[in-house]
Write a protein that binds this DNA or RNA. Structure first.
Lengths: 190, 190
DNA sequence: CGCGGGTTTGATGATGCTCAAGCCCGGTGG
DNA sequence: CCACCGGGCTTGAGCATCATCAAACCCGCG
């Protein structure tokens, strides 16, 4: 059973066992190994994904043909290309596992039906989205006020365990830096 | 009556006249002139704001003592410092009118009570937040893939009327550019 | 053992910032 | 009605930060 998801929902709303059974009808578990894809550029992003265990990254390929990571998702995070998900537009992103992961997915129509059958879940998702928005406001603030060096240092200070968990070039990409520059910064610090 | 807000809600959920009356209990209209403040740094952001008419900007003051704009809100947009709003933390932001504006505000406790009395509004706000998240994902993508020059050009191309509406130095700040550099870019184009 | 992905190194250079000065123009007070 | 004031925009010189490119290196895995 999806203990992480259940606990996450219970942080924000009441959830009895019958409701959990109903929820289960709409949720599709996906077990993936390292580097499997949930979404590729050009496809419509038809689901939102919850990370029960593992780690996802979302990236696009820029004009220099290099991968530009815009988001990570760790345990207890939802991730999706909302622009594509909402309007059924083809996505410009890839979503891929960084490591072996257990993902729960809800596709567009299940999402709608689930919300119809369990309207209390509207509240849960309202809160989830609101918190995601707060997080993205915060991140934007850091990008505005910090230099790239400060941004890197701040990030390593804030998420030391995460920095261990994923390769350095991914951190670099996520922060909008080149791997070479990150390497230079590391040398300076140690 | 707040026709913009009503119409905006009706884009996403059904809304009968009785419900509107109930809604009214929770909404506080605020009329502001140019450069009035809704929030100042250090205060807790106790409300979310809807722009019926006019324009708001959200900014913080960086270490060089200059104002860094992170968001604008035009007609039919909600704005708030969600980080502060959710957790009752003091905000690092200012929210200020750019021009004479009619704002609707809902404070924390009204928001909770309103959602309790009108649970269908959870759906409305879930959708609003979801779309705001999509918008912020899109903006982040542009910041990653475009140079500052391209970012400026793209922005002017996407929102020509808006660029007319607010002073140039605010556009510069929002895009993370210096006014001097924007000036240089304009010269190049014309 | 060899291959290949990831990291490091160093030289070179562009993008976009800083600072200082001048200009333009609209508003305000005399 | 005019003069002044000041906020915003422009100009240009100099420079810092960070990207680019090419090469070498390191090391875990097949």
């Amino acid at each position: 059973m999806y203990t992480n998801l259940i606990n996450h929902i219970r942080r924000y709303i009441e959830l009895d066992d019958d409701t959990i059974d109903i929820l289960n009808k709409y949720i599709k578990p996906v077990n993936l190994k390292k580097k499997d894809f949930l979404l590729k550029e050009g496809q419509v992003c038809r689901s939102i994904y919850f990370v029960e265990k593992g780690c996802l990254r979302m990236f696009f390929v820029n004009d220099k043909m290099s991968e530009q990571i815009t988001q990570f998702a760790l345990e207890n995070w939802w991730i999706s290309d909302f622009f594509s998900f909402i309007d059924n537009k083809p996505s410009g992103y890839f979503i891929q596992t960084v490591e072996k992961s257990e993902i729960l997915s809800i596709d567009t129509s299940s999402f709608e039906m689930m919300l119809k059958e369990l309207p209390q879940m509207e509240r849960y998702f309202r809160i989830v989205m609101q918190r995601a928005l707060a997080a993205s406001q915060l991140r934007a603030k850091y990008m505005y006020e910090l230099t790239k060096e400060e941004f890197y240092t701040h990030f390593c200070g804030s998420f030391p365990e995460f920095v261990q968990r994923v390769p350095q070039y991914m951190i670099a990409s996520y922060l909008g830096l080149t791997p070479e520059y990150v390497s230079e910064l590391r040398k300076k610090k140690l």
